[in-house]
Design a binder for these strands. Structure first.
Lengths: 116, 116
DNA sequence: TTGACGCATACCCATATAGGTATATGATGA
DNA sequence: TCATCATATACCTATATGGGTATGCGTCAA
């Protein structure tokens, strides 16, 4: 009787990056590996919070981690973002080629609505 | 003291497209406007469900709607997806240029982990 | 005006978070 | 072995959903 409330963030890259903090983490990792504590500090959030977000990112494969002495360094593995980039890219024609037409179309919709 | 559980889907495009059904809707709308009932049918879900997803998409601006007689036609306005496309594009170098290096790096991480 | 049709909402539920705090785990160094 | 540092987890709370069902509302046709 599983009454799904929402797809688990851990199951999908789209969900993983839906959280602003996690997107911030990915951006921070673009410049290189970082230990959890440093990420937590840069995010301005408690360490446990950062660890939890990192866990989600790890489970969807957007980050990789390795131990380094007492620390655990997290590194970016952005390959999973490619899927999102390509999916959104599938709509590119709707914001480029057909922009004028689309804008006109949207204006029409707005007018039609105001006319109610 | 608002204890945010999660950013509202209605406030952000990233959240809006985190839901599979909503992504399906956007894909369906690529071929043109559609009345709610038809979308619900194609999604294989009750009409109220489709309406709710459409509402979220409307609130983040990914779809526009207009009345047409007794029906309400929903149309795609993919411009908001551009932001997502560009954000993910900011990581492109990590899955193209540096692929070999990255893959090697990931392998190292895995080995390091197995070596524990 | 009335009845049917197409949607949007109101509710009710169970679940999945995001956060914060306290605590268990692991690893390092004296 | 013991104290300490760096993380990961366990809990607990308030919310935000997604889904299903019943129902309100506006529009159109007879």
């Amino acid at each position: 009787m599983t009454v799904m409330a929402r797809a688990a963030t851990t199951s999908d890259v789209f969900n993983a990056i839906a959280e602003p903090r996690r997107r911030e983490i990915l951006v921070l990792l673009r410049t290189g590996e970082r230990p959890v504590a440093q990420l937590a500090q840069q995010l301005g959030m408690p360490q446990p919070g950062a660890s939890k977000h990192l866990r989600v990112l790890r489970e969807v494969g957007l980050v990789q981690d390795r131990k380094s002495g007492k620390q655990r360094l997290y590194g970016l593995d952005a390959r999973g973002l490619r899927r999102v980039h390509e999916w959104t890219g599938g709509f590119e024609q709707f914001w480029n080629e057909g922009f004028d037409r689309l804008d006109e179309y949207v204006q029409d919709l707005k007018q039609a609505r105001q006319a109610d």
